[in-house]
Design a binder for these strands. Structure first.
Lengths: 225, 225
DNA sequence: GTTTCATTATATCATTTTGTTGAATGACGT
DNA sequence: ACGTCATTCAACAAAATGATATAATGAAAC
């Protein structure tokens, strides 16, 4: 070919980005960062990695252009470099769901067993929120809720849910959400609440998808260090 | 976490897909397959790989769900499993262009040097095609043209272009295209034709993007083995 | 049924990636 | 300046990946 290698160079860079996505733990870190900026330590703890290992993964993704970091005091905070990163992981998931039998089995097995109902679309929830007809339940950990959440959402982390059921209304519709399409928290919450007779459905996607769609969000203002 | 590992399984699968994209040669193979179905041998030759090596890469991508294969006679033909694969590589490129300085430099260096003008958008070309005001030039190799091309496009492979200039009109606008956004053929063609005084611009993206947008395409009918 | 030939599988080796440990860096508080 | 602490770097072993040569497969042609 007469190509002078510019394409080769570009594709080498693009391949690096793909490689940076090509690890279970790194995809999980991206899911966490989609909730908002976090320190290396917080990410390591949440992802179940030792600090140095998490640091390695983060550095790799930063070099690939997926993440950016900033220093604040003695902590270093990472965040997604660009909303396009979320589109990228969404495209990855879509290819998987449509072309890998095993993925479809996991989804229909585990996830549909917890919630066989269709999720509530973002558009529908936005409408019903305006009408004030629905209680929105955020089952993520408190710190993630603080970084940003749906308007008027109440936060009951999944692990506290069973002992805080009285905070939820029985006569109103509830819509639960968490980190994203493959986050198990909302599925578990829906299964638990249904067993207790609540009228609960799950939101399509999670908080990052809601925000990426340009819908209104709220912040607790608290954690912004 | 209380998660029973379903998410881990899913993310492991998704990571495999990303890994399958994480190699320069494999991205190039995908670019080629975006033009249409091809045999292992044809792909190996076009990508500059030895057969066994190409076969390995293809198998890997098939297992990841990016490709599917079918047997026809003694040849095995691969193709993209899903249009979502193209969306995935497009998302990859977008993250690269927006977040890697080196990518921007290559694009503005090599590519913009050949064609500093804005490309013609697909919508605009579609409109001007209906009005019959434009000559569409496909500079890909003949066999790729045969697999599908823009309506009324004429095919002059780049390597024949300089000795077939008389086939092109001087007084009409020309729009050139090739395999996709990072294919060098159309850039080289535009540079060459401008030097010879033709009024030529480049199409946004290439044939795969045109077809993915749902715009009309033509086939030479020839190569369909 | 044997031969042919495109493709895939296997074996091998060099290279890269991953995870761990412990040391080094660099900003902060005293 | 000094110690403290979060993060990164460096060094290692284990695992994976990539490329090549060669063998095996399996459909097609005779």
């Amino acid at each position: 070919m007469s190509s002078p290698g510019s394409k080769q160079l570009l594709y080498a860079r693009f391949a690096e980005i793909a490689k940076a996505l090509g690890h279970r733990h790194r995809l999980e870190i991206i899911e966490l960062l989609a909730q908002g900026e976090r320190s290396v330590e917080a990410l390591a703890e949440r992802a179940g990695l030792v600090l140095a290992n998490a640091s390695q993964h983060l550095r790799l993704m930063r070099r690939a252009g997926l993440l950016v970091s900033r220093r604040a005091g003695k902590h270093i905070f990472y965040r997604l470099s660009d909303p396009a990163v979320l589109e990228l992981t969404a495209a990855l998931a879509r290819v998987g769901e449509r072309n890998l039998a095993e993925v479809r089995e996991i989804v229909s097995g585990y996830f549909n067993e917890r919630d066989g109902m269709e999720p509530v679309s973002r558009a529908e929830l936005a409408r019903r929120l305006e009408e004030g007809l629905v209680t929105v339940l955020d089952v993520r950990p408190q710190d993630e809720f603080a970084l940003g959440h749906l308007p008027r959402a109440i936060n009951i982390p999944l692990r506290e849910l069973s002992r805080r059921l009285r905070e939820l209304p029985k006569e109103r519709a509830i819509v639960a959400y968490c980190r994203g399409p493959y986050c198990v928290l909302a599925f578990e919450a829906v299964a638990l609440l249904r067993r207790h007779g609540f009228a609960v459905r799950r939101l399509e996607g999670g908080y990052p998808e809601w925000r990426a769609a340009g819908l209104p969000v709220a912040e607790s203002g608290a954690a912004r260090a």
